[in-house]
């Protein structure tokens, strides 16, 4: 667990009727909790746009927690049921972006479940502490990017009809040196930046 000497960056989206009340109840009961979470109040978990979560994570949040009423208890009858599908999709989607799946979670906490709220926040915060801070979004060196583009990584699929013939791209390695894409819209300055001594895997490593 990394202690940065400051809070981690955790955003919570809580529905007004249940979970926000649950968080209030935890406060009223003076349940001690980690301080990292910052709560944004929304009317319903159905209002939580999966893009808010993506936006927060890509903007440097270390974790995002969405909490709504338990299924069947939605103040608006169905909001959390839509939310459940949307957020589950997002949860399964995030890893492909390289965002660790543990950084996003959605849960149900009712207004009376102060102690459950405390447990959830504590567990989630612990998990984020374990994962450490979200990777920073600094721009990779432009020349290396241009290189990737020129190589035009192919996404060839294995032959589905003839098993045992995988022609899988090796995602972690740069594609083999090939003729530059003559018709690609690469600006010449980008290409000119490729110094012949550029070694490594095009990843800056």
């Amino acid at each position: 667990m990394q202690d940065m000497g400051r809070d981690y960056r955790i955003i919570g989206f809580l529905c007004n009727w249940c979970s926000y009340g649950g968080a209030d109840a935890a406060g009223v009961a003076r349940f001690s909790q980690p301080t990292d979470l910052r709560i944004i109040r929304v009317p319903c978990s159905g209002r939580v746009d999966p893009m808010f979560v993506a936006k927060a994570l890509l903007s440097g949040a270390d974790g995002v927690l969405v909490s709504g009423c338990h299924p069947r208890d939605c103040h608006y009858t169905e909001g959390n049921l839509y939310a459940r599908r949307r957020l589950e999709m997002l949860r399964r989607f995030l890893p492909v972006l390289g965002v660790d799946e543990g950084r996003f979670e959605y849960i149900w906490v009712s207004a009376s479940e102060g102690s459950r709220w405390r447990d959830m926040v504590t567990k989630f915060t612990d998990k984020i502490h374990q994962l450490g801070p979200m990777p920073r979004m600094t721009e990779p060196a432009r020349t290396l990017c241009a290189l990737d583009g020129m190589l035009g990584q192919s996404l060839a699929q294995p032959d589905m009809t003839q098993p045992g013939q995988p022609v899988l791209p090796d995602w972690s390695k740069p594609a083999p040196p090939l003729t530059p894409r003559a018709d690609a819209m690469l600006s010449m300055s980008d290409i000119a930046g490729i110094a012949p001594e550029t070694k490594g895997d095009g990843n800056g490593r």
């Binding site: 492909v96 390289g98 660790d100 990777p135 791209p169 090796d170 995602w171 972690s172």
Partner: peptide, 16 residues
């Protein structure tokens, strides 16, 4: 194949 990479590698891939 892609998901065999570590989250960090995937993140870097997309970053690039």
């Amino acid at each position: 194949g892609f998901e065999k990479l570590s989250p960090q590698e995937r993140f870097d891939f997309w970053k690039r």
